[in-house]
Design a protein around this nucleic acid. Sequence first.
DNA 1: ATACTTAGTGTAACATAAACACTTAATAAA
DNA 2: TTTATTAAGTGTTTATGTTACACTAAGTAT
Lengths: 220, 220
Amino acid sequence: MLRSYQSVTTDIVIFTIEQEELKVLLIKRAKEPFKNKWALPGGFILENEEPEKAALRVLKNKAGVSNIYMEQLYTFPGSGRDPRGNVITITYFALAPTEKIKIQKSKETQTPTFYSLKKLPQLAFDHKKIITYALKRLRSKLEYTNVVYSLLPQFFTFNQLQEAYETILDRELDKRNFRKKFILLNLIRSTKKVHKGIRQRPAQLYQFISCRPTELKKFF
Amino acid sequence: MLRSYQSVTTDIVIFTIEQEELKVLLIKRAKEPFKNKWALPGGFILENEEPEKAALRVLKNKAGVSNIYMEQLYTFPGSGRDPRGNVITITYFALAPTEKIKIQKSKETQTPTFYSLKKLPQLAFDHKKIITYALKRLRSKLEYTNVVYSLLPQFFTFNQLQEAYETILDRELDKRNFRKKFILLNLIRSTKKVHKGIRQRPAQLYQFISCRPTELKKFF
DNA sequence: ATACTTAGTGTAACATAAACACTTAATAAA
DNA sequence: TTTATTAAGTGTTTATGTTACACTAAGTAT
């Protein structure tokens, strides 16, 4: 008989942009293995629970968010969460603006913390690899989808939009070319609001016409 | 205690090109559920077996091939292979030239058969969805990688190469532009051999400089 | 009134992509 | 051996998209 049963976990790479840095949510593990090491939020998938549901549950419990952008990343073998080694982990990546995230300090004091991708601590399991994979996916998604909407507030300036791109791609973009291209894409519309309360010329605020994941022909 | 155990399967979309058609390998199920329906080759992942190893095992048993291009596609929930519903399937897609594939008629007489994507029979589980997903991935991979090498024989004519693209993308390409672009990519080299035994002017034979998956800047 | 800071805008050069038709080299048939 | 047939092979022009680049405008603070 071929059938066997595996222990299946999920791990989530939750990205946000804070202070012009791309950050990822990590928790300090309270249990063995890798006790006291930093790791991605995750956990076992329950009986009869769909993997995506499990990921959403983790997102809710660890980051206090629901209703944000999330997609499956990859299924990795044996992350080692189960001491017997017989485990796979289905990974997801999620994007949310910082304001939406309400970190849940759990009873196990796992101290969830956003770390800049440029200053990651040592990570448990193969979570470094997973984050690298997620970053690659995020970068390429920026180029042919509108997912950036999920990292920005409802109303934003053109500069905030450009900074999001620059932060994630880790390179500077030309202001005029960026605006030209983005306007042609027809993804955002200008509102009558302006960004006030700063001491310079106020910037016009924009919003996304649609906040659903959409694939574009080409992009950046 | 959160830990639970899931029944985990793998299903593989094996593509090949035959008679200028893109085809996928299907087997007729010998058991319930979906007995006598067509389905992707697949099976349960064994105790302590890595998912990719399981996929390679299926590839070997059902299509008689090893050492061909294969990559993970997506992990789907509950394909229904386990009657209790508590199952996930890790899917892969593989590419091989027809010559390499030696279909194994198994004792269970599962009659593995290549079906043109344009004439698929009714499929078991959610395998239609998986094939659609695989086709999308294959098409986009054609545009930014060199994977096409895995569908062609070692030596091939420029026309065979172009036909592979046309078959998969399901649209015609301009002969001169195609050659120009492909030559610039520097992926293939011409050999001194020619394609003989046909009644027209013999075509020069080419081979890939490297047969390892490589990502390109841009493509088609 | 002036200084400061970020917002906002257009054009020219360059690179890439698309459209398009004839000559060449072999085999087969007359 | 000549001619017909078939696919191989090859450049140029046009259109489109991408990159590089610098000044004026509109607010706030002093």
